[in-house]
Design a binder for these strands. Sequence first.
DNA 1: ATTTTATTGCGAATATGTTGCAATAATACG
DNA 2: CGTATTATTGCAACATATTCGCAATAAAAT
Lengths: 125, 125
Amino acid sequence: MNRRNTPSKEAILDLLSGSKKALSQDAIERQLDIEINRATIYRVLNRFCEDDIVHKIVAEDGKQYFAICKKCDDPSEVFQHHFHFRCLSCDTIECLQVPVEYSVPNGYEVQNANCVLTGVCDDCS
Amino acid sequence: MNRRNTPSKEAILDLLSGSKKALSQDAIERQLDIEINRATIYRVLNRFCEDDIVHKIVAEDGKQYFAICKKCDDPSEVFQHHFHFRCLSCDTIECLQVPVEYSVPNGYEVQNANCVLTGVCDDCS
DNA sequence: ATTTTATTGCGAATATGTTGCAATAATACG
DNA sequence: CGTATTATTGCAACATATTCGCAATAAAAT
Ligand SMILES: [Mn+2]
Ligand SMILES: [Mn+2]
Ligand SMILES: [Zn+2]
Ligand SMILES: [Zn+2]
């Protein structure tokens, strides 16, 4: 149950921390300096998710992308569910600072939101 | 390029038209009276999507779900991007009549939205 | 009837993600 | 330190979803 510090964890966390984009397992594997097994990368990422260090986005391509959970500038306000943007041109996914707002019919209880907008980002337009 | 009418198309369209839920390929295959090959089901569904008869939702499970494109009660208004709800209890996905509203940073152009809320639906709570 | 070609079925390929298991190594504790 | 505990890793195998090539079939046009 108790977490241990390992080179794998550290390398993956460093990579995600320094990235402006959400990364998939294979992007992480490619960008890493050290070699880490695929299964290990997934296990590390899933543990980060359990610990709320990282959140997972599932895009329209059906793949999982992972991004660091950042707090808002206003530390009193927890960073809520937000939109993600997938650029079809540069094929990247990023977290938008845009909260997801919705209302649901009576009796519906929402536990999570996975919202991805697709299009062309500023850099590519 | 020209579309032809086939028993497969008709059966799948009937099924989707009569369903309150978005359906995955394997759900469609199970619920069909006639037997249709897996690859064919996907091809029919993808053609429906191209023709804007059906829309595709990708859920957190990474699977594709398909639902008929319905117009609003108000025929003047095209049915926009809307939220979808995935119930973890009855494991279904439905279209909510809740439009997706957002703003994006300057220079971003949105072409599509894939938004799925997850939780427990009214029937199951 | 004949032609054209969209559609289908089949099998194989691709891709993503998970799991069992034995080996390794981080941590706790004497 | 030295040892014990067990979280973590690598590897291979597995599971599942979706696509693709290709030859056969059948809708639609002539
Ligand atoms: Mn995010
Ligand atoms: Mn829908
Ligand atoms: Zn871009
Ligand atoms: Zn339900």
